[in-house]
């Protein structure tokens, strides 16, 4: 079959709309334009390492890590429970997990605004119980909640997929050889499910680090994450050079952590999910 040329339109498209734009961003990040003066510089990158911007990066990584850990702690047990129910219920339960994901991402975040805001339902409930209302909206807690809510299925699905593929006879063998339930889980099920855990961690951590919508809607203005910083530079400030430099840094962080995660994940289980 000589059908190589079928890929040429694709090559053309990807060169113009994927490779060239990234190259342009790289060029912007390495140059400056000040009135009439223009030239090559690394100052956009060194500027990013000023404490004020570095803190934004650290806060983004910090919040994303917290969300990932919460998703793992909440998600693993539920994935395990679902994988152990009988097939008929199992499929329904997984389908139920997926339905909210098909709702528009912004609507899901918006739903939490309704619940969390000052006169929202949670506070109404608290005051009617005689408790003092909480200030959840516009805090780090609200941002983490939004991330966990939106990305929890990304943790549960890969773990679930790996868990249902585990050969039942391995677990029976462990039991026959005298391991109790807890030991079987620790020595057989958990190690075998690690590929799912790793792709789950990747799939929650990556969108959490780069989000700017959740932090904008639930975190208000004062909790800037790295995604918001990029948005600001391009939309409000108009400093494309600095914005490009931040984008390049973020891209490198993501691609490097992806390749590290890939190394752990030997049989590539579920990586292509993301």
């Amino acid at each position: 079959m000589k059908r190589k040329n079928y890929a040429y339109p694709y090559v053309f498209w990807m060169t113009i709309f994927v490779v060239l734009p990234l190259f342009l961003v790289l060029v912007y990040s390495l140059t400056f334009k000040n009135g009439l003066k223009a030239g090559i510089t690394l100052s956009n990158f060194t500027r990013f390492f000023e404490p004020i911007y570095l803190n934004v990066l650290l806060r983004s990584i910090n919040l994303a890590l917290i969300s990932t850990i919460i998703c793992l702690l909440l998600g693993y047990p539920i994935a395990y429970i679902i994988s152990r129910t009988n097939i008929k219920h199992r499929n329904t339960l997984i389908l139920l997990f997926l339905i909210p994901m098909w709702m528009n991402f912004l609507l899901r975040t918006y739903a939490w605004m309704t619940l969390l805001e000052k006169n929202g339902l949670i506070n109404k409930l608290l005051t009617s119980l005689g408790l003092s209302p909480l200030n959840i909206m516009y805090t780090n807690g609200a941002v983490v909640l939004g991330m966990v809510y939106n990305f929890l299925p990304f943790m549960v699905l890969p773990i679930y997929t790996v868990l249902i593929k585990i050969d039942k006879s391995l677990i029976e063998a462990a039991n026959d050889l005298g391991a109790n339930k807890f030991k079987t889980f620790l020595k057989v099920t958990l190690p075998l499910s690690l590929p799912g855990v790793i792709s789950g961690i990747t799939m929650v951590f990556m969108p959490s680090v780069t989000t700017f919508v959740i932090s904008r809607l639930l975190g208000g203005g004062q909790f800037t994450l790295i995604g918001n910083l990029i948005e600001q530079q391009f939309i409000n400030v108009g400093d494309w050079n600095f914005g490009s430099a931040i984008s390049i840094v973020m891209m490198l962080i993501i691609l490097i952590s992806m390749s590290i995660m890939n190394r752990f994940d030997k049989d590539k289980e579920g990586v292509n999910l993301w």
């Binding site: 113009i16 709309f17 994927v18 342009l24 948005e231 391009f234 993301w274």
Partner: peptide, 17 residues
Amino acid sequence: LPVLNPDIVTAISLMVL
């Protein structure tokens, strides 16, 4: 590349283009 790249980077790179 576009699958793994953060959405926002794909977005701003296209806007720049």
